[in-house]
Amino acid sequence: MSALPGVKALVFDVFGTVVDWRNGVARDARTFLLRHGRADIDPHAFADAWRKRYQPAMEEVRSGRRPFTRLDVLHRENLNHVLRDHGIDPDGSAPEELEWLNRAWHRLDPWPDTIPGLIRLRARHFLAPLSNGNILLLANMAKRAGLPWDAVLGAEAAQAYKPQPEAYLRTAEILALAPGEVALVAAHNGDLAAARKAGLKTAFVLRPTEHGPAQTTDLRAEQDWETVASSFEDLAERLGC
């Protein structure tokens, strides 16, 4: 018996839910910072500072103050700001070096339960990302990590950034499904709340170290989501996979 009866497709938040963005970005930031003689900068703090600019950059698009702009471009602009904030002039680095660091977001590692859980879930559901990442980013990530998506959908497909309702509704439309036949799997209560408001079903998966050992957010399900799981493999159990 499935905790999500009638759901045909599972769509996934990616950054934090599917992959460990913080340690992945810090790993490549450490390489860059050491190359520039800046061993004094904590690479995890650098990753946190870069991520902190993520929502404000997307809000420029969501508000209509800026046309839709893919996340790779927003990340690259944010990287320049973060480098300057840490006393590093981005103009002093080769463009290809900055592009390599910007693509740290393409090289993120999945959580240990991600791939075995996805393989089980895929036996009974169509799987795709519903992420603010762009298609190339998500495709490169999947190719490197072996994520078994049935389709790679990025924010360009919806031309909207979560939590705009269009991000959820257009994804369901692309899959030729009613919103109630789609469930969002996410480690973020806010994302799930927006998905539910758009008519999607919801599955909360706990990721208590997404923001590091001192994480204070999303440590529990804050609403009565259709299902709550401790991992993707636990989710597979709850969905009868």
Rank of each mutant, 00 (worst) to 15 (best):
T17G: 06
V11R: 07
L108M: 01
F15N: 09
W225E: 05
K197F: 09
E156C: 01
A104P: 09
H86G: 10
V228E: 14
P67H: 03
R84Q: 12
T114G: 07
V73G: 12
A104S: 06
A123M: 13
V25Q: 01
K8M: 06
A203M: 04
Q223L: 11
I135R: 06
V205T: 13
Q223T: 03
A3Y: 02
A193T: 10
I41S: 13
S231W: 09
P116R: 15
A183Q: 07
L184F: 04
A195R: 03
H86V: 00
F12I: 00
N23F: 13
L138H: 01
L71N: 07
L130P: 05
F32W: 15
T209C: 08
F232W: 07
P95T: 08
A214K: 14
W100A: 12
H86L: 04
F32N: 05
L137R: 01
L108T: 14
D150Q: 10
P163H: 00
G190F: 00
P213G: 12
T31K: 13
R38W: 11
A45T: 08
P67C: 05
N80L: 05
R170L: 15
G117Q: 07
R70T: 12
H75K: 06
G154K: 00
D89T: 15
L200S: 05
E173V: 13
T216L: 07
P5S: 02
L192R: 14
G146M: 05
F32P: 15
F32I: 08
E166L: 13
A176L: 14
L235V: 00
P56H: 08
A167Y: 01
A178Q: 08
G212A: 12
A193D: 11
V152Q: 04
K201Q: 12
R120Q: 00
G87C: 08
P163C: 15
V61R: 02
R53A: 12
A158P: 11
D113H: 11
T217Q: 15
A176W: 10
E222N: 02
A229P: 09
I174T: 14
D91H: 10
L184C: 01
R70N: 14
A139G: 06
A145L: 01
L169E: 15
R70Y: 15
I119F: 10
L79I: 02
L74V: 04
I88G: 05
N140Y: 03
V73C: 10
E233T: 06
L127E: 14
F68M: 09
P116Q: 10
P112K: 07
G6Q: 06
